[in-house]
Amino acid sequence: MEKRPDSHQTAEVFLDATEMRGTGELIIELEGVDKYFGDFQALKGINMKVARQEVVVVIGPSGSGKSTLIRCINRLETHDRGRIVVDNTELTDDIRRIQEVRAETGMVFQQFNLFPHLTVIDNITLGPRHVRNMPKKAAEDLAMEILTRVKIPEQAHKFPGQLSGGQQQRVAIARSLAMNPKVMLFDEPTSALDPEMIKEVLDVMKELARSGMTMLVITHEMGFAREVADRVVFMADGEIVEVGTPEHFFRNPKEERTRLFISQIL
């Protein structure tokens, strides 16, 4: 399989969460981010940087805060302390700015969250038409182009309920791509899928990574991480425990907690 020119995943490297790879040009920055749900602290002083065209895979046990982390990046959750900057825009309560950030940030959910009352093509054109003010025809042409890219153009006029899980998740990816985002966030995109459908979704994601998309992916698919990740981030108890290249994680993780987790999922 072809390697991206800027990736170094063969090397066994231990990294800091703020040591970016990719192009080296900053796109996401988190600085001392805390997040509480009531008394429970979900994120504890997270520092992290992501560069353009970088693929970062986040792993960790459930309840470790990885979902909360990426949901803070497009402000589906609000953080309580620290700074989050996405594409030079700091996330504050200013709803207009947040809408702009969200439009630039694609998000793919574990449960797909397609709109069941709209056909596939309407699911995809909703954003371009109402956020980008694209005329209907142009939006539909764009949607068909992207559906071809995720290999389901023939499903364009069906309802989500008529599709398989794998197809639905590819529609969800297409829905995000239609906004031409600068970053894509994936929250366990294959966890709700039957095993035989996981591959078709991962293939689309790999193609996306190869095309140079900046991606932040929560997944337990270690094959995917090994193949396309520039960095792997291991989280536990709301903290970033260890960061490194995939090789580093699979060969020689430094922390005991990391070792235990890796041994459980492999």
């Binding site: 589906l76 809408q99 959910f109 969250n113 709109f115 954003g127 906004m179």
Partner: peptide
């Protein structure tokens, strides 16, 4: 999740 999906494409409230 439906509302979040809408928000995450940048749709207004």
């Amino acid at each position: 999740g439906q509302i979040e999906a809408g928000q995450s494409v940048g749709l207004s409230p």
